[in-house]
């Protein structure tokens, strides 16, 4: 059974039809990269999976749980971690507090356990030495690695990444991608919206190309990048690969 099932998902922003009959299955442990021009609906797509964006038609099952029912939303959000383009760390908390807060108050872990696991995760994204600092004291790349650790602290089954490197200075992109690659290798189910084609080639099991709210084409990275079938995919790739 797929861990994410999207069936005929439709979403409108007012009159704008932003997701058109999306059908998508993601298997456990799969790494799916979503590419496409801006405004194609790719961010909206992954934001529907943890109900940050409500859908108007269709059905989404996450780990078998139907998220269209409001009472299920909190349950699903505990299982789905999310990393944002603009990090969205909590600026009034230290790095350690950022990572340990949700496990403490949502999972109801005692502080020691939450902080111990938070430290292990900070170790894992190679930023444990900054645990007592505030987000504003860190570089963008460091902040995004903290954001990854924060999402992982809830021990999610799925991780969503919404353009995680787009707001970073070029020299910091690598460190964030490295953390994501390590996560992919550990067997995490990941949905990643990104323009990093190198990352997609290296770790993605599948690449999805979206345009105008539709899934135009999908397949293994080599196939999509080297031998795109669809005209719109070709022209998009021609524009981003120099």
């Amino acid at each position: 059974m797929p861990i994410i099932e999207m069936r005929n998902v439709n979403k409108w922003f007012g009159a704008l039809h932003v997701l058109k009959d999306i059908n998508l299955d993601v298997q456990k442990g799969e790494v799916v990269v979503v590419i496409g021009p801006s405004g194609s609906g790719k961010s909206t797509l992954i934001r529907t999976i943890n109900a940050l964006e409500p859908i108007q038609k269709g059905k989404i099952l996450v780990d078998g749980i139907d998220i269209s029912k409001p009472k299920n939303i909190d349950e699903v959000r505990k299982e789905v971690g999310m990393v944002f383009q603009s990090f969205n760390l909590f600026p009034h908390m230290t790095v350690l507090e950022n990572v340990s807060l949700a496990p403490r108050i949502v999972r109801k872990w005692p502080r020691e356990k939450a902080e111990q696991i938070a430290m292990e995760l900070l170790e894992r994204v190679d930023i444990a030495d900054q645990a007592e600092k505030y987000p504003a004291q860190l570089s963008g790349g460091q902040q995004q690695r903290v954001a990854i650790a924060r999402a992982l602290a809830m021990q999610p089954k799925i991780m969503l990444f919404d353009e995680p490197t787009s707001a970073l200075d070029p020299e910091m992109v690598g460190e964030v991608l490295d953390a994501m690659k390590e996560l992919a290798r550990s067997g995490m189910t990941m949905l990643v919206v990104t323009h990093e084609m190198g990352f997609a080639r290296e770790v993605a099991d599948r690449v999805i190309f979206m345009d105008m709210g539709e899934i135009i084409e999908e397949g293994e990275p080599d196939q999509v990048f080297s031998n795109p079938q669809h005209e719109r995919t070709k022209s998009f790739l021609a524009r981003i690969i120099h």
Binding site: G81, M82, F90, P91, A102, R150
Partner: peptide, 27 residues
């Protein structure tokens, strides 16, 4: 307070009250 703070907190499974109590009000 930026919308992203709400989104980040909610994506971690916090209830609206917890988002207020721990994230929004302190800022």
């Amino acid at each position: 307070i930026a919308k992203g703070q709400w989104e980040a907190a909610m994506s971690l499974g916090m209830s609206p009250f917890q988002v207020m109590r721990y994230i929004i009000v302190p800022q």
